[in-house]
Design a protein around this nucleic acid. Sequence first.
DNA 1: GGAAGTCTCGCGGTTTTCGGACATCCAGGC
DNA 2: GCCTGGATGTCCGAAAACCGCGAGACTTCC
Lengths: 174, 174
Amino acid sequence: MRNAQPETLTLDRVATPVGEVLLVTDAAGAVRALDFVDYEARMTRLLDRHAPKAALVEGRAPEDVRTAVEAYFGGDVRALDGVAVKTGGTDFQRSVWAALRAIPAGETRSYGQLAAAIGSPKAVRAAGLANGQNPIAVIVPCHRVIGANGTLTGYAGGLERKRWLLRHEGVAVA
Amino acid sequence: MRNAQPETLTLDRVATPVGEVLLVTDAAGAVRALDFVDYEARMTRLLDRHAPKAALVEGRAPEDVRTAVEAYFGGDVRALDGVAVKTGGTDFQRSVWAALRAIPAGETRSYGQLAAAIGSPKAVRAAGLANGQNPIAVIVPCHRVIGANGTLTGYAGGLERKRWLLRHEGVAVA
DNA sequence: GGAAGTCTCGCGGTTTTCGGACATCCAGGC
DNA sequence: GCCTGGATGTCCGAAAACCGCGAGACTTCC
């Protein structure tokens, strides 16, 4: 529909303790998407939505991004804080994702707190929805949002991974 | 919804024999919109659709554009041929508008011919619809398209103006 | 007959509308 | 405690309505 400039994105793979991840970067070196390999269909669907007409070619991501990802999974849970990301999406979604990056490793928020943080305290379900459409898992830490009563509620990559990630960051979870 | 970069557009006014026209140009000097002053609401609506988030400030259009418009209304009906334009819109709409510019002053086409020219001979009504959404009147000569039986059928600026423009270009119309 | 008007219907892209779905939260009843 | 139901904001997909048409069938007048 709307016109968009063609663009080439690079698709790389990185091994982690919870399975291989797919890592999509653009020409500027910014991360465009990150997801677990067994959810590739979901990732390409999100990419199609947010970056239509973009070509995806296998290749190697910038070294600093690769090493940051490996460092995170190796135990340096703050290694991803400085990684540049770029997303499409609506204004609302982008504000949610921006708010996510402000949650430090080792902490969690409830969906209600997340909604309040972006100035729409009543848009709780909408915030949860936007959370689930986050195209850049782990780096944009959507896994740090849990139910108000402490339940994990959901995770696009599987609840097991959400639990693993939180424990890896030092959070005590059931 | 989609993100778009903020942009500043310039709004100028030019007097013509059929009323004042509004002339919107961008920083690069390309025409973004042109409409008659009494249809300003329509123009701003189209602009909003095709260039969301753009700011519109009163100002003076580039001299070469102004003189081209004045020359056209003064009798040099080909004066607008070289004027640069830029539009948003869907692929279909853009191809229709491009086809319009290929119709020389003094000639007309039917909606069917227009549809055929863009390779969709059956998309007749769709072509008519796209024609009516042309944001750059006169320069993109949507007024040169008339019904297959010679009736003028419609014009966003009023049928009287369509008739005047065609006669001004030397077409015999009822 | 035939020329000109009127009506009907199919056409294709775009816009608008509407109905769900959803990784929530809270209150209230049992 | 556990379950139920309601309020709530956003987004997506499907469906319907909208049109600056055109061709063909029918009527109406000469």
